[in-house]
Write a protein that binds this DNA or RNA. Structure first.
Lengths: 239, 239
DNA sequence: CGCTGCTTTGAAGCCCTTCAAACCAGGTGG
DNA sequence: CCACCTGGTTTGAAGGGCTTCAAAGCAGCG
């Protein structure tokens, strides 16, 4: 059930059998959420964190006029709100973008882990720092990359991250977000996202077929994005 | 010496005398860096973290064509690269924007803390999660706020953060960054930053005098920024 | 007192937005 | 089983916020 989560952790850190048991023991409850369901509301006091098992979710902030900005996409294996363990309430909402299956982990159990498993604690600390690294890369995208480059970068990132948890083919992966969702990730309008997608499609670089994204020309995509996966910390094994 | 750091921590968490001693004992060396000095280079393996004592520093990423994006500004009291403790190398540079005085904290000592002081570990975990919250707010700015609103928001944020460590007056604080630095924070060009500043100056909202920012009309500034300081987690005391 | 780096201003242009409407696919009910 | 409805996609035309390019103004400093 939490195999994807373990895949993600082990891609970067050593996890002992003891630690694995502790993780498995930390899960309390499994839930399912429909698409568009806000399962964590900003500013609400929290007593558990949410591990995503299936589906795509996001962290979302917005402005008074309704302009929305997604600050991170979450995929299966991610702890979508591990940071709420230390923050106690969040500055953003968490929304299921597709139907999602999640596992809840009570903060009380995380606290036990933090008392009894210093190394595992550092692993989870690392996990929230990885989220922050993704935020920084998105800041670079939002601040300095063109619309086309931003979009290309997002698909490169998803391809790598989904690959780690066994959810991506060599050049494609399931993708069921709307163009509006993409626009909310990229700080663009739907209209412009549509035009950029059209351009990439016509150049034979990125396409969609039956709910799957197809990275038809991956090297061009990476080139357009100036994609450097170092920020995803794939080759590090800290202790 | 690390009083500002303690002020920052205690603003949000209880720190016992034991813990304070552990923190003081963790500092090894004090250094001074000139303005524009890159004191941490991306991708380089690290064995210490850097506590900022005086001056302003930033986290910076860039693109091949030289476009720069600052992902966070650091003020006295901040651990500028506490996240390198778990990440081991960084995805960005750390640069002194003004002359800076810093204290180095070896990762070995942080590791000791993480083994012996679970609560203090959570406090530092919290600190890196706070940086991530700032990243998210900047993502919202970069993606969805207008240039004027973005700039106003940055000054509201600095005013609050500097206030916590005793470095802001009611309506002003020392500010010695260039308009280029601001542009790199805001994802804009210097030229446009200059025009926005002119506009705010003429409206009597924000001015500069002898190296200090003057928030002449703070309520307008907050209004323009849609500033809500919740993301700075000022009123939380997690355990 | 002339460098040097930062600020300021103008003119022109482009990337992305806004507004508006048509198109299309999938699900529902008559 | 088709007609309809709804939400998402696509396209066009016009406009605006910010950039680009270029150059002048200005302040601090050796």
């Amino acid at each position: 059930m939490i195999e994807r989560h373990l895949l993600k952790l082990r891609r970067r850190n050593d996890i002992s059998d003891d630690e694995e048991r502790a993780i498995r023991g930390a899960v309390s409850e499994v839930r399912e959420y429909p698409a568009d369901f806000t399962f964590i509301k900003r500013h609400k006091e929290l007593h558990h964190s949410t591990m995503l098992l299936e589906g795509l979710a996001c962290r979302l902030k917005d402005l008074r006029d309704g302009e929305r900005q997604i600050s991170e996409l979450h995929i299966p294996g991610d702890f979508a709100d591990l940071h709420s363990f230390t923050l106690k309430h969040l500055d953003h909402d968490l929304i299921a973008l597709t139907p999602c299956k999640v596992a809840l982990v009570p903060h009380a159990r995380l606290k036990e882990i933090s008392e009894r498993f210093p190394h595992l604690t550092r692993v989870y600390w690392f996990a929230t720092n990885l989220d922050a690294a993704i935020h920084r890369e998105w800041e670079l995208s939002l601040g300095r990359r063109s619309a086309t480059s931003r979009l290309a970068h997002l698909f490169c990132e998803l391809h790598v991250r989904l690959g780690i948890v066994g959810l991506a083919g060599e050049k494609e992966f399931q993708f069921r977000l709307t163009q509006q969702d993409l626009a909310d990730c990229l700080g663009l309008t739907v209209v412009h996202v549509n035009r950029v997608l059209k351009d990439l499609r016509e150049r034979g670089i990125l396409g969609f077929k039956s709910g799957r994204a197809q990275l038809l020309d991956l090297s061009s995509l990476k080139e357009i994005a100036e994609f450097d996966p170092t920020y995803l910390y794939l080759d590090l094994r800290p202790r």
